[in-house]
Design a protein around this nucleic acid. Structure first.
Lengths: 198, 198, 198, 198
DNA sequence: CATGAATGAGTCTTCATTCAT
DNA sequence: GATGAATGAAGACTCATTCAT
């Protein structure tokens, strides 16, 4: 129970302050617990943060896998996937912004506060979600619905747009529903911005 | 002269370490100067960082404005703009990653290390570059080359893809030239991923 | 039963880590017991430590008293006593090293982790063993076998050599038997290092 | 100047409290300085401690080497060396007690607060002083003044007696002069406790 | 202008001890 | 008796900033 209180408080504080500026003191104040308790459940500030990430992303990943497995036209799958992505990132925008920042430094000297091992684990997690996107796109190509392109890049491009738009506050903070936003993104992604001759 | 040495060193250190982990000590070691000297030229670690941002982005913005002013078909302008964006962000990927992280916290309680005033100034700077993109897109719509859509969103979507792909390391680290990458992005952005019937 | 498990584990951990670095957590892990159990049997980490000392030294003291009581020439007694000392300190070198360190601070402001009362009890225990040595030496003087000297100092000197040589690793870790070591020490103690004219 | 204040304060606090219980806070309170200042001059609590040891022992070692080099009968040298040892250890009894405790753990798992590298450096320092004693004893044997024995052991035995007697408070705290104490030790060490027939 | 010694507020982390079950 | 979750006081260390020279 205390464990959950701490996780909830940590979620709030990390989201608000980022990793560095988040202090254990503030977390325990919010969790209404003692400082030692944090270290009974988590070895580190770092490991607390990652536990948070892991637990939050589990459900999202499951949902995504589920969509990929549906028997349905690819375009429908793509739209659904975009919606699930949007929902997740809107919900967890702040924390994932922090995560992405701390995960940066691909190959750089002293890149973040995290162990290289830890970073690798979570980079894998990211790869996983985009690889599901790739799979869906590939399916579309195989069925002749999508034109041939580099699915790896296309999936990342799509992922980028989604994440970036959420982070930039274009989605989720205004009145517009996520459904509508998802459709807008899908529209441009699928058909481009060039006017059709027909 | 000392001022420039400090800025150069700061660029390197902030890029490598991020804002928090960058220490004034490391900067002066690299700049081969005394600690007090930093505070003669810059009021703050914060203000040093932003001076860096300001000076680095000036040339980029000028170039972008220049492209917007060219007399040329919109599609060509778009491709050129994408290339300029890519070049700039590949060059300054690390520092801008840091900047974007520190600029987060839109409207939140205690948002970052920066003054709200400072943050506002640089948000404006971002808006400025995307607004040039918007302008180019709008021109395309007016000339009937692009289909009608929300230019604000489209511009941000494009911006997002560019920035995110650089940050994710998709561009600039592999053998592929920036020219090629720019074309690939432009292709999907303009024509979408859906297969044409023709 | 639990009590003994805890004592055994405590012996190991205190010996290995010293008093401060020994943690209750490590002791209970080794003792395979719960943390509360320790505090059922011992009021304190401190009192746990001293219980250890007390129980370990009881047999040694008994043996020493026994030797003092033998009817035998003084030189033989001295050799036997040296051997018993060596055996005990070799066996318990690590723990006694720790004890001696914690017992320091004779008369100082804030001397150690221990209550002054506790320290006094164990200083008395030390005095006790050396006083038995004194007694044996005095017997030798009374019988004209040893030359007249300050028995108090001489006993402490002998004690010092024994303990220090064990602590320095001169005895007990090499191939040499304790018997041989004991004879070597006795030889110099009894006859000095100066060459005889005869 | 601050550096010296810190060293002086550290000497006092480490001597009084031992390594673990000595806190940086207490040291700076005594040194009348800021906490950061300590870390400007010393990388560590550990390194502060060892700087202390190094600076304190330098003069002592020089004096000892000097004695070894004198042209004088060996017995005189031995007496002089004992006196120098006594003086040094009486002066620095408390700090060296602490050092010896922290240096323990020859080959043990996790023996002290110090790096193995650091410990090795100071073990060497100890070896150095006793090796000078050995040298003096060997000279005595070579000149036929001392009987043949294991000089290594004998030197350590002598060293042990000296150190231990100081640590036990036998020397330096009572009215007796160091001169007298030195003679007493030398007497037993040289001639033993056995009564002469002559 | 340039310098760098001095500073102390702010952090994470450890660990003996308690107490309700 | 046995247990272990909860606790918080205490401690080492970092680093931006100041100011006298």
């Amino acid at each position: 129970m205390k464990r959950q209180q701490i996780l909830d408080a940590a979620y709030t504080v990390f989201s608000r302050k980022g990793y560095h500026r988040a202090t254990v003191d503030e977390i325990i104040a919010l969790a209404d617990t003692g400082k030692g308790t944090v270290y009974n459940y988590f070895v580190n500030k770092e490991q607390l943060f990652y536990t948070l990430i892991k637990e939050r992303s589990a459900r999202f990943e499951a949902e995504l896998i589920n969509i990929a497995g549906l028997v349905e036209p690819p375009l429908g799958k793509i739209k659904k996937a975009i919606k699930v992505f949007l929902e997740f990132y809107v919900e967890n925008a702040d924390l994932w912004r922090v995560l992405m920042h701390e995960m940066r430094g691909l190959g750089h000297e002293e890149p973040s506060n995290f162990t290289e091992a830890q970073r690798e684990k979570y980079r894998a997690r990211f790869q996983h979600t985009t690889s599901i996107l790739e799979q869906i796109l590939q399916e579309g190509i195989d069925q002749g619905v999508l034109r041939i392109c580099d699915v790896h890049k296309a999936a990342h491009g799509l992922f980028s747009v989604i994440v970036m738009m959420v982070f930039q506050g274009f989605i989720g903070e205004k009145g517009e529903s996520i459904e509508t936003s998802a459709n807008g993104i899908a529209d441009i992604f699928l058909y481009g911005v060039v006017a059709r001759q027909d």
